[in-house]
Design a protein around this nucleic acid. Sequence first.
DNA 1: CAGCATCCTATCGGATACTG
DNA 2: CAGTATCCGATAGGATGCTG
Lengths: 118, 118
Amino acid sequence: METYCKFETALDILVGKWKPVILLRLFEHGTMRFSELQKAIPDITKKMLTQQLRELEYHDIVHREVYQQVPPKVEYSITEYGRGMHTVLKAMNDWGVSHIEHLNELYGENRLKEKGSR
Amino acid sequence: METYCKFETALDILVGKWKPVILLRLFEHGTMRFSELQKAIPDITKKMLTQQLRELEYHDIVHREVYQQVPPKVEYSITEYGRGMHTVLKAMNDWGVSHIEHLNELYGENRLKEKGSR
DNA sequence: CAGCATCCTATCGGATACTG
DNA sequence: CAGTATCCGATAGGATGCTG
């Protein structure tokens, strides 16, 4: 079996404390301004939001549109290419949902996050 | 769209510097002893190997079989449940492979890992 | 408004030594 | 052989303040 050498690559791109939430919002709302993202994700700082968006932008998952005006306006959206992640995200999400149930069966409810999950 | 809330869960379980390699080896070889895993992954330390295996074990992805004998013998394998991740891993791997090509088109070859990918 | 720069800390991961 | 314990450095992430 010569596969599974590059799923680490996918992992790298998705990892980051806020990437999941950011992607979720952008997939839901389509296009959002920087400030809208901030409001939608209350606990995130500007620094983190910028940083994570830049990484996603580098990987061509997210598009950054700057409007040259005062006050500034910048809009973020999922790229055409980024939509190709839909399958992967869905696969991961579905597995995640069922896995939570599985863990509950194993250890009982309300025990996630307590042990072993770093 | 009410989905994509839990793909973060899948992410958490797969994240860890060595989890991808460990899973890869176990999927390939089926069952491996602690020392075999060490040899198969030269740069990993015992501490890291133990730690990552314990996390995977907690999530019921990996099974730990202890043989009560001297010298000790412990074997690791993917659980029945763990095999259910196959779909997800494959989806991620396939996307990873194509994404590397995509990045090469965007930025040219040999430029991965240089920018933005944390 | 949408950031960047600076500083700080918490967590992750590595090196090394010891043990049943 | 298969770990555990301890220490230690690197890095991810957070708080705060400044700016075009």
